Simulated scan of single mutants.
Amino acid sequence: MSVPLYEAKAELFRLLGHPVRIRVLELLQDGPMPVRDLLAAIEVEATGLSQHLAVLRRSDMVTAHREGTTVVYALSGGDVAELLRAARQLLSAKLQGQRELLTELELEQAETRQG
């Protein structure tokens, strides 16, 4: 039996619901990286990173290949980078709205103190 689309989407967002996985995907937007470089850029133990990379690999978000003894990871396609860009835009819009609200509150406080 097939899974409804909304459940499949929810599973995708659960997959992305960990900061280490998001950070890995962000780092890989600049191009393929060996595991050692990912470890240096993310403050997480090697076993933890390995588990997160395995989840991303199983979900086809990243690919991995060997270069000698080094495993190099890359985004599996442009759609992943596009999703991260969309998330940045949504977050930016949300923060802009909060910034505007904070400015209004600060103006109101200043007027209250003066009046």
Rank of each mutant, 00 (worst) to 15 (best):
S2G: 09
E7P: 00
E7V: 07
E7R: 12
K9L: 15
K9N: 10
A10G: 05
A10R: 08
A10L: 04
E11V: 01
L12K: 10
R14N: 11
R14D: 11
L15N: 12
L16R: 04
G17Y: 04
G17T: 06
R21C: 04
V24H: 00
E26G: 02
L27T: 04
L28N: 00
D30A: 11
P32F: 08
P34W: 05
V35A: 11
R36F: 14
R36D: 13
L38F: 04
L39H: 04
A40K: 15
A46D: 14
T47R: 15
T47M: 14
L49C: 11
S50E: 15
S50W: 03
S50N: 15
A54C: 00
V55T: 08
L56G: 05
L56M: 11
R57S: 06
S59P: 01
D60Q: 03
M61V: 05
M61R: 04
M61E: 02
V62L: 10
T63Y: 02
E67W: 00
G68Y: 01
G68R: 06
T69W: 10
V72H: 04
Y73K: 09
A74W: 08
A74N: 07
S76P: 05
D79V: 05
E82C: 02
L83H: 03
L84P: 00
L90D: 06
L91W: 14
S92L: 13
A93Q: 13
L95K: 09
Q96R: 11
G97N: 09
E100S: 13
E100F: 11
L101C: 07
L101Q: 15
L102G: 03
T103G: 06
E104K: 10
L105T: 01
Q109I: 13
Q109R: 13
A110R: 12
A110E: 15
R113P: 00
Q114E: 12
